[in-house]
Every structure is written in structure tokens, then in C-alpha cells.
Design a protein around this nucleic acid. Structure first.
Lengths: 187, 187
DNA sequence: ATATGCCTACCTTCTAATAGATAGAATAGA
DNA sequence: TCTATTCTATCTATTAGAAGGTAGGCATAT
């Protein structure tokens, strides 16, 4: 793994665990055994680093969605697979979705990062909307709103469920809520 | 208003807007025209201040729930009134619920604050659970889980909806999602 | 005269960021 | 092929400013 990858991975974990305003170049430097000046070489400013973290995370997330589309055929199974992505993230010492973390910090971030955060919402909501539409047509799912609106509500609820699991360090809170939310729109 | 109240109110707003790790005693001092040393007189450490903020917010929130119970009789109306609390909070320049903000910061906070944050979840979830139970018995609401579990999911979803509205600075996202979530459990 | 509330002045540590040096790898020209 | 140069990645050293916090002084009100 290259140094710049190591930096980004470490920054991602610290962001997921503590938030953007609660980790420093010094934290990263101690974790990977490198001086802070070297981190500035790869990522001139902390905002550059934050932007790169979200860019990479979005790419990985999009790839995960593509994989779900390729593997599952039932829209319901797809939704469950999507929910599993959240559970897996929490699985490793209560890491939050970086998007959720950055959303609380959003008023302290530059547009370059804000755009990536919003992009993550849109990526997820777009995928969810088309999956929900499919489920509605197949009569596997049932809800009284547009698939687009339902997607927004669903994604927000999933992020909220992560948050609440984190508050109690209780993964059960997440998995239970994810299941229940999906059940609410089942036909 | 006493100085200590002014400090707490200012801290509450800064917490709601930027998060615990993104405001300082210096920020508060500039906003209310007082020196940082004077803030330390009232709240020796920033953690003391954070704890007091959450304590007061919990009290106000409990009072708001009591008021809903006193005013509305239908469980459905009560739920809508509860949701309105979230909308009102967001209404003033996209302020988040302090509880949601502190939840993302939770790994950086002492137990004294963690307990207050969890307390806020429990206060809300307990109230929601009994309201949901009432709605279930009156056949105004319908869901296939325990009122307690439904309450947790509902509250988490509401917090998530706030977050997503914040990401886009779009209050509509919040109000729409709140309505849709309630509709999902309507009989 | 004593307690309250705020001040000035200071301290220490951390933070993000920069400048400049260096060592080694890659590359280009003779 | 040998040599000169440039690039890459790291380091040391330093900066300016902000952070949270403390000590002690000075009014005012009781």
C-alpha cells in the first residue's frame, strides 16, 4: 500500500470514529509512523484530505451498489443487501458512515467537501429510488409516495439508525431498525 | 437573562449548528461580549458546559412532551406534534437536535455527557413507545413490532431526517420525511 | 468584610501549515 | 556508459494562531 493510500485509509477510519473536527494530522502521523509534514506533501490541506476521503468512499460505495445489482434479482433482497452495507460498516468498532459524520460537521466544511457529501446522498438515493420503483412494480413493496421521496426517507432513516446504535454502542439497535424500516414498506 | 444562561444558550446554538468539537470558549466570548476566563468561572471545563447544555435541553424537551400530552388526545396528533418539534428546531437556520450532534461526537466525550445524550434518546423513546402503544390499541396506528422497538426506529429516523435536511439545507426534506414515516405506521 | 462576577495576564499544548535540507530513484544528454 | 539533473518522498525546524485552562486582581453589592 502506498503512503498516500495509508494516509487516506487512516483518515477515513478516524473520520468515521471521531468526526472531521476531532482528528488531526498528528493523529494520522502517529498511527502510520510518518511526520505531519509528509502528510502535507500528499494532501496539502486537511480539506484536500477530507475531499479525497469522500471521493474514494463514493467510488467504493458505487461499486458495492453495482455488485448488489449484479448478484440479487429481487428488489427486496437488494434492499436488504443495501442495509447490510450499513451493518458491516458499524460492525468494525462502531464506525459511522463518513457521509453521516461529515453531515453534522457540514457548516464547518468548504464547498469542495460539501459537494462530495451531497453526492453520496444522491448516489444512494438514486439507486434506492430505482430499486424501490422496481419493487413497487413487482408488487413486492408497497408505499404511498414517489420512489424518489421514499428513497430519501429510507436513506435518512438508515443513517439515523446508525447514529442511534453509536450512541449506545449497541449494534442490535441498527440491525433491528434496518429490518423494521424495510418491513414497513413490504407488500 | 443571567450571564450563565446567556453562555448556555449561546453554547447550545453553536453546538446545534457546528458540533461540540467545532466551537470554542472564544466563539462564545465574542458572541456575548465577555472574556473566556469569565466563561470558565461559570463552567470550569468545556465538558461541564456540554453537560449543562444537554441537561437543560432534556428538561425543555420533557416539558414539550408533557405539553403535547396535555393538549392533544389522538395518538396520531401527538406523533405529528412530536415531529413538529423537529421541524421547529430546524426552522431556525438549520439547527440540529443537540442530541444528534453530540452522538456523532460521542467517542470524544466523557461519560458525564454520554449519559445525558443517552438519556435524551430514552426520554424520547419512552414517550414515543407509550404514544405508539396507545395508537395501536385505538387502532389509529398499525405496525408489526413492539411499541418500544418501533419507538427506537421512529426516533432514529427522525434524527436521520434532520441530518439529511441539513446536508442540503432543505427543510422540505425534513418535513416530507417526517410525514412519510408517520404515514407508514398509520392504520 | 465578604462573596460574586468579571477582568487582565499568562501558560501550555495542540493545530494546520510552510520552508528548506536531504537522500535516493528516475531520467536525459554526451 | 557515465554523468548531470530533476523528481519524489521524506525529514527537521519553525511559525502563527487557537485551544482549554489557571492565577490573581478589582470592583460592586450584600
Amino acid at each position: 500500500m502506498t503512503t498516500s493510500e495509508q494516509i487516506m485509509n487512516t483518515a477515513t477510519v478516524l473520520l468515521q470514529k471521531h468526526g472531521f473536527n476531532a482528528f488531526s494530522y498528528s493523529d494520522i502521523s502517529k498511527l502510520i509512523g510518518i511526520k505531519t509534514a509528509s502528510i502535507h506533501y500528499h494532501y496539502p490541506s486537511k480539506y484536500d484530505l477530507g475531499k479525497s476521503v469522500m471521493e474514494k468512499y463514493r467510488l467504493m460505495h458505487k461499486a458495492a451498489l453495482k455488485k448488489i445489482d449484479a448478484e440479487s434479482n429481487s428488489p427486496l433482497k437488494k434492499l436488504q443487501d443495501f442495509a447490510d452495507l450499513f451493518s458491516c460498516t458499524m460492525g468494525i468498532d462502531y464506525r459511522m458512515c463518513p457521509c453521516g459524520m461529515l453531515t453534522t460537521d457540514i457548516s464547518t466544511l468548504p464547498d469542495s467537501i460539501k459537494i462530495e457529501v451531497q453526492g453520496f446522498y444522491i448516489d444512494s438515493e438514486t439507486w434506492l429510488a430505482s430499486t424501490l420503483k422496481e419493487g413497487l412494480e413487482n408488487e413486492v413493496l408497497k408505499f404511498d409516495m414517489s420512489p424518489g421521496d421514499c428513497a430519501k426517507t429510507l436513506f435518512a432513516s438508515f443513517e439515523g439508525a446508525m447514529l442511534s446504535a453509536r450512541a449506545f454502542e449497541d449494534k442490535n439497535r441498527l440491525t433491528k431498525s434496518l429490518k423494521q424500516i424495510i418491513k414497513l414498506i413490504q407488500a
